[in-house]
Design a protein around this nucleic acid. Sequence first.
DNA 1: AATAAAAAATACTAGTTGGTATGTTTATGT
DNA 2: ACATAAACATACCAACTAGTATTTTTTATT
Lengths: 200, 200
Amino acid sequence: MQQELKSEITKQLIIDKAFNLFYQNGFKTTSIDKIMKETTLSKGAFYHHYKSKKELGLEVISLKVEKRVVNGMIAPLRQSGNAYQIIKDVFTNRLKEFSINEKQQGCPMNNLINEIGNNEIAYQNALKNIIELWKTALVQIIERGKQEHTIKEEVSSQAVATYLISAFEGIRGIRKLYTNDTVLDEYISGLTFYLNQIKK
Amino acid sequence: MQQELKSEITKQLIIDKAFNLFYQNGFKTTSIDKIMKETTLSKGAFYHHYKSKKELGLEVISLKVEKRVVNGMIAPLRQSGNAYQIIKDVFTNRLKEFSINEKQQGCPMNNLINEIGNNEIAYQNALKNIIELWKTALVQIIERGKQEHTIKEEVSSQAVATYLISAFEGIRGIRKLYTNDTVLDEYISGLTFYLNQIKK
DNA sequence: AATAAAAAATACTAGTTGGTATGTTTATGT
DNA sequence: ACATAAACATACCAACTAGTATTTTTTATT
């Protein structure tokens, strides 16, 4: 029982360090050696718990990356109150919450989508799953907004959800190229304008 | 004179093959060996023309990647006619033009932004330059639209330009995860709705 | 205390990486 | 035609890569 726990702790340690290194230096350029150096464990320990780098990558996506998106962008949508206002707040507040590092490094999910989203079907599906979770949650609150008469009935919930996610992920990438927040402010201004269109 | 031309031809060959490999397999995982195998020239030839992979990368960005964006998204904006309609057409037509491969592989610029946009300042600036070109061209046509009364005066041209670019690049990444165009259709629907807001 | 199995360490592949050193071939200017 | 330099080829390097084989250490079961 204690052994099982130890195994779980070690795996979590590996996943945590791996996520950080993937985020800071990219997936492909992060080697198992570098990850295990961070954990102060050996390579033998890694291959005892994981059969390949790919298996680790998938766990990082489904545990760490997904959790980040859920905590930052999905869970906050499940609030009571004005649906329109919640959407607006979640999208703008999240951006303003980001640390300097998070602005420079972009979105972990988006980085992975663009770095390895076309290589492996397994990565593709794991990442797609996160996008689908996000989209579903957004569609849900937009529909709620329509019922509660804060959002226009004639808008396509799917279309708005997709457009919101696209623009958010897009700006997270573009911001990496800059050293100040001008481009983020412009995005927020553009977003506000957009949301005004769906407001009832 | 003949020598200079030969050198130029060889460099172009290297750049072309490099761009294709970067696009299909990513920047980091494309080695000089792989590139030179494509050209049927030797590694010695490469290092005669380029001092490093970084130097090649920068040339690929400023020549091939930039040209792609200019041809596909910037030059078409410089048409006479209804500014609002031109913007709408350029954004939607470009998406529909893409081949299956281009949909699967995403946007070469966006891939690079997210793969190496945070590593090297040199890459950052080369990529930022393309974004700035695009933004400037968009701002220009939006301003024109305001003057010609096809676009509302009260919208911020900068904000709209940034939001349009963000969403476009974002969807190019997200599309990589799917095997059909549903998500692209939703994007176009969301875009159309957005543009309707700036229409006068 | 003895046995077995899990957890982790050590040592090792074979292949790849960016880059260099040193050649050979081809063009050019005199 | 000859010296010079550019264009390209060959052979190499040290560092790094994912993964394996083998041994040691720790934990659990009897």
